[in-house]
Computed example of a mutant assay.
Amino acid sequence: MNGADTAWIIVATALVLFMTLPGLALFYGGLVRARNVLSVFMQCFAIACLMSVLWLAFGYTIAFGDGNAYWGGLGKAFLNGVGADSLSGTIPEILFFAFQMTFAIITPALIVGAYVERISFGFVMTFSGLWMLLCYAPVVHWIWGGGLLAGGEGALFADAVNDFAGGIVVHETAGLAALVIAVVLGGRRKKNVPPHNPGFVMLGAGMLWVGWFGFNGGSQLAADGGAAMALTVTHLSAATASLTWAAWERIKYGKASLVGMVTGTIAGLASITPASGSVGPIEALIIGGIAGIMCQEMCWVIKEWLNIDDTLDVFAVHGIGGMFGIIMLALFGHASWTAQLGGLVVVGVFTLVVTFVLVKLVALVFPIRVSEEDEITGLDLASHGERAYDHAS
Rank of each mutant, 00 (worst) to 15 (best):
A222D: 06
A223H: 01
D224T: 03
A228R: 01
A228K: 15
M229K: 13
M229G: 01
M229S: 08
A230K: 14
A230R: 08
L231N: 14
L231M: 15
T232S: 14
T232I: 08
V233Y: 01
T234F: 01
T234D: 12
L236E: 13
S237Y: 08
A238H: 01
A239G: 14
T240W: 02
T240Q: 02
A241T: 03
A241F: 08
S242G: 11
S242H: 12
T244Y: 04
W245A: 06
W245H: 07
A246G: 10
A247I: 11
A247Q: 10
W248T: 11
K252C: 14
K252W: 05
G254W: 06
G254K: 07
G254D: 05
A256V: 01
A256K: 14
A256D: 08
S257L: 08
L258P: 04
M261L: 12
M261I: 01
V262Q: 05
I266S: 08
A267Y: 04
S271D: 09
S271V: 04
I272C: 00
T273S: 11
T273P: 04
P274R: 02
A275K: 07
G277T: 15
G277A: 11
V279K: 14
G280W: 10
P281V: 04
P281F: 01
P281E: 06
A284V: 03
A284T: 05
L285V: 07
I286P: 08
G288H: 00
G288L: 04
G289T: 08
G289S: 11
I290M: 13
I290C: 11
A291G: 03
G292S: 15
G292M: 06
E297Y: 04
C299H: 06
W300P: 06
V301G: 09
I302N: 03
K303N: 10
K303D: 14
L306E: 05
L306M: 15
I308L: 11
I308D: 05
D309N: 13
T311K: 13
V314S: 11
F315S: 00
A316F: 03
H318A: 02
G319C: 12
I320M: 12
I320D: 08
G321Q: 04
G321V: 00
M323W: 03
M323F: 08
I326Q: 09
I327Q: 00
L329A: 04
A330K: 03
L331V: 05
F332G: 09
G333T: 07
A335C: 14
A335E: 13
A335S: 13
S336G: 10
S336F: 02
S336I: 05
S336P: 06
W337P: 06
A339K: 10
A339F: 00
A339C: 00
A339I: 02
Q340L: 09
Q340N: 13
G343E: 09
L344V: 14
L344E: 07
V346C: 07
F350G: 02
L352C: 14
L352K: 09
L352W: 07
V354W: 00
V354R: 02
T355E: 00
L358N: 06
V359M: 12
K360H: 11
K360A: 10
K360C: 10
L361A: 08
L361D: 00
V362A: 07
V365S: 15
F366Q: 15
R369T: 08
V370A: 15
